[in-house]
Design a protein around this nucleic acid. Structure first.
Lengths: 112, 112
DNA sequence: ACACTGTATTACTATACAGTAATATATGGT
DNA sequence: ACCATATATTACTGTATAGTAATACAGTGT
């Protein structure tokens, strides 16, 4: 079976774009980075990020709906954990790219 | 030199988020996917995507400003080409993730 | 039952930005 | 110089969504 040039339909594009949109908010990135590999409850995330509780809760809900984090209730608190490691993979790719782009610019300026 | 847990400052978060935001528009993804490895002028991209010329031009400008595509004038036309392959790398990661997520859901439904 | 704490939700405001029509700016041909 | 074509820009409108204060909801202890 031959693999011809894939024609991405609009629904697929929308899904992919949505995934990127999920990662396009500094606050969400901050939460994900704060979480890292551990499990944390909302209050701790609020404290660690310094953000408003409602805001953190909203972002966690969005991440949860997208299947990026898991939720585990434990008494009064709710514990979250990153369940999708591709998140970090994406961030790594972006970070290295930004870094090298930055280095290039710095190099270009080094003659001045 | 010990590598302690990197504390991402707000500026860095903003840059990373910005990179993802760049990829969070279906139209831009469509343009990038249309370009692929070749060089195309604006008219051809407009034809291939079926989008408004002003819109394509705007998105190309945004991609250019972000350093994702290069621009080469040739007479009346302007040729664009993807200059940052991490773009495709990011898309690949997202696509496989979405696919496996989808497969999981389908599997979960297979018992019904 | 009541009070307390942790989390989610609601309702709102403000901002960012995609799409678009109209217009401007090139460049080439006559 | 003028016209035609390709691309960029401007000005505008509508929509999505982040942040937030207030409130609801759930679980725990008394």
């Amino acid at each position: 079976m031959k693999k011809k040039k894939k024609e991405l339909n609009d629904a697929a594009l929308e899904m992919i774009a949505g995934r990127f949109r999920l990662m396009s908010e500094p606050m969400r990135l901050k939460i994900l980075h704060t979480l890292g590999e551990r499990e944390m409850n909302v209050s701790d995330i609020v404290a660690a990020t310094g953000a408003n509780q409602a805001n953190v809760s909203k972002h966690l809900g969005i991440l949860y709906d997208a299947g990026v984090v898991t939720r585990r209730k434990e008494g009064l608190t709710v514990n979250y954990r990153v369940s999708d490691d591709t998140i970090f993979e994406l961030c790594d790719v972006v970070c290295s790219r930004l870094k090298s782009q930055f280095d290039l610019r710095r190099f270009a300026l080094s003659d001045l």
